[in-house]
Simulated assay, not measured.
Amino acid sequence: MRKELLRRYNRFKKAIDLLSKLSLMNAESIIEDYVLISSLERNIQVAVEFIIDLSNYILSETIGEIQDTYKEHSQPRQ
């Protein structure tokens, strides 16, 4: 898992670097460019997915088993 997490971290870092560069662009220029919007959406998705997976990994390492879904987490344990 750690090897996979490291690989995904490297992809996350690339996504954040790209998003940082694109944040300096004029909003109108971004809105008019469908390819650029698609790139932004995908890189935001990559970043968010990594953060969620990293959080789950940390939780599983510290407290053991974690719930698969929010619904499972919000229901009382029996």
Rank of each mutant, 00 (worst) to 15 (best):
L36E: 10
L36Y: 06
I37Y: 09
L40D: 07
L40V: 14
E41H: 06
E41I: 07
E41S: 09
R42Q: 07
R42K: 11
R42F: 07
R42I: 04
R42E: 09
N43Q: 06
N43E: 08
N43T: 02
N43K: 01
N43M: 01
N43I: 05
N43V: 06
I44P: 01
I44V: 14
I44C: 06
I44M: 05
Q45V: 02
V46H: 04
A47N: 07
A47F: 02
A47R: 08
V48P: 01
E49I: 01
E49C: 01
E49W: 05
F50Q: 07
F50G: 04
F50I: 05
F50P: 00
I51T: 11
I51Q: 08
I51V: 12
I51R: 08
I52S: 01
I52F: 02
D53Q: 13
D53N: 11
L54T: 04
L54Q: 04
L54I: 03
L54K: 06
L54V: 02
S55C: 06
S55G: 08
S55E: 09
N56P: 00
N56Y: 07
N56C: 08
Y57A: 10
Y57Q: 04
Y57G: 00
Y57H: 11
I58F: 10
I58V: 14
I58H: 02
L59K: 13
L59C: 13
L59Q: 14
L59G: 12
L59F: 13
S60T: 13
E61S: 13
T62I: 15
T62G: 06
T62C: 11
I63N: 10
I63F: 14
G64A: 12
G64Y: 14
G64D: 12
E65S: 13
E65F: 11
I66A: 12
I66L: 14
I66M: 14
Q67Y: 15
Q67V: 08
Q67P: 15
D68K: 15
T69L: 03
Y70E: 11
Y70C: 05
E72T: 04
E72R: 08
E72Y: 00
E72A: 03
S74C: 04
S74P: 00
Q75H: 02
P76A: 00
P76N: 03
R77L: 05
R77A: 07
R77S: 00
Q78T: 11
